[in-house]
Nucleic acid binder design. Structure first.
Lengths: 124, 124
DNA sequence: CCCATTAGGCACTTTTAAGTAACTATATGA
DNA sequence: TCATATAGTTACTTAAAAGTGCCTAATGGG
């Protein structure tokens, strides 16, 4: 079936939307990672969701899945060329979100951004 | 309950995510609109979803709801100061999405972007 | 008296996204 | 022979998002 978007944002959200994709993409922003390493860095994601989201990102040609022919298996994921162009966008989006969180916190609202304070948690 | 985000993007997506919010925000990008006018410009949205999304955007302080004390009722919606800062971000996101759509179309994949070709449809 | 107009509420159903738990394959080394 | 490590699948359940249909309030005009 043909995909139909009203505006460009929808095409973007179609690719990076959902609970886990931004997180996965951020982790892949610093170079290739093996499946297990990704899982360790995103402790609350389940096996199924990780694989599912990785498959969708691969299908959308945002990441590349490289299989080493070994036992036990070794699989690496890394950003494709198009995926790399997403990095700047994700950074821009993050900056806006961080400002918003600070604004809300300044107003005393109960919001927390784990990537702040918790050193070495995530780049963006 | 406290809201917890891993990274800034999540806070952003929390505000602009979903099927209708980007579209609504784009329409409001050119000045205040009445409820009915919004509905006319987004023909496929339902009463309920329109009201619901507008309420959430208002709750998030992205838009302002101005009620005129008249009968029949008149209500206008427009971007708040924080909402206006979203415009640039949405434009950036749209640019990325448009490039992606063109790339997919060039590869012969069945994707359509209504804001292209259909003149006067939406700014971004 | 009754209808049109405008913005929206409410109960319910359907659809989509996410989560849970148990399972597979296979070379290696003890 | 058997546990280990690694990446992944499958059937099922639960939760969240979106859609449907019908209802309300209030006033001016015919």
């Amino acid at each position: 079936m043909e995909k139909i978007y009203h505006i460009g944002v929808e095409a973007t959200l179609d690719v990076i939307g959902g609970k886990w994709k931004p997180i996965i993409l951020c982790h892949l922003g610093n170079g290739p990672l093996r499946t297990g390493e990704l899982r360790r860095r995103i402790p609350t994601i389940t096996q199924k969701m990780l694989t599912q989201q990785l498959r969708e990102l691969e299908e959308d040609e945002i990441i590349v899945r490289k299989v080493y022919n070994q036992v036990p298996p070794k699989v690496e994921y890394y950003l494709s060329d198009e995926g790399k162009t997403l990095r700047d966008l994700l950074v821009t989006m993050s900056v806006w979100g961080e400002k918003r969180v600070k604004r809300l916190q300044a107003k005393g609202q109960p919001v927390e951004l784990l990537s702040q304070g918790h050193e070495g948690y995530l780049k963006f």
